[in-house]
Measured scan of single mutants.
Amino acid sequence: SLEEAIRRAEEALRKGQTFEYAGIRVTTQEALEKFRKWAEKQK
């Protein structure tokens, strides 16, 4: 689910890792916010 993907992205960010979902790379807090906004639109 998208909620699960967001949780995994947050977890990866805390560990300093890269999270990738549907071709979207989350490597920074800013990218995480963009990913969250994108995920909201997918619902």
Results as ranks from 00 to 15, higher is better:
K15A: 14
E3P: 06
A5N: 05
E20K: 04
I6Y: 06
T18G: 08
K34N: 12
Y21M: 05
E33A: 10
V26T: 00
E10F: 05
F19R: 00
K37G: 09
V26K: 00
Y21K: 01
K43Y: 14
R8Y: 10
Q17L: 14
E10K: 05
E20M: 08
T27I: 06
E40L: 08
R8P: 00
T27M: 09
I6C: 04
F19V: 03
E3C: 05
A9R: 00
I6S: 02
K34S: 12
E11P: 00
V26D: 01
E40Y: 07
K34D: 13
E4F: 05
T18M: 12
L13C: 04
E30K: 09
A22I: 06
S1F: 14
E10N: 04
E20R: 04
A31T: 13
E3F: 08
E4Y: 06
L2C: 06
A39Y: 08
E10V: 08
Q29D: 08
I6K: 01
A22L: 12
I24H: 14
L2F: 10
K15Q: 14
A5K: 04
E40D: 11
E10S: 06
R14N: 12
K37T: 11
E10R: 04
A12I: 04
F35P: 00
A22Q: 13
E11T: 06
L2G: 02
E11M: 07
S1G: 11
I24E: 03
T27F: 07
Q29P: 13
Q29Y: 15
G23P: 01
E3G: 08
A39G: 05
K34T: 11
A39V: 15
E4H: 08
R8V: 07
K37L: 13
E11F: 02
Q17C: 04
L2Y: 10
A31G: 14
T28S: 13
A9T: 01
K37A: 15
T27K: 07
A5L: 15
Y21W: 12
R36G: 02
T27Q: 11
A31R: 04
K41P: 03
F19L: 03
E33V: 08
R7K: 13
F35S: 00
K37P: 01
R14C: 07
T28R: 02
K37V: 13
A5V: 14
W38D: 03
K41T: 14
L32F: 10
L32V: 03
K34R: 13
Q42H: 11
T27D: 15
E40K: 07
E20G: 02
G16P: 01
K34I: 13
R14W: 08
F35W: 06
E30R: 08
K41R: 11
Q42Y: 10
I6V: 14
E4T: 09
E20V: 11
A5Q: 10
L13I: 15
I6Q: 03
E33W: 04
R8E: 13
A9E: 00
E33P: 00
T28C: 00
A12W: 04
L13K: 01
I6A: 03
E30M: 08
S1I: 13
S1H: 13
E4I: 08
A9G: 04
E30D: 12
Y21A: 03
G16M: 03
E30G: 07
E3A: 11
E11K: 05
G23C: 02
L2M: 10
R8I: 08
L2N: 02
K34L: 14
S1M: 12
A39D: 01
E3N: 10
T27H: 11
K15T: 13
Q29S: 10
E10I: 08
I6H: 01
F35I: 04
E30I: 08
K34P: 02
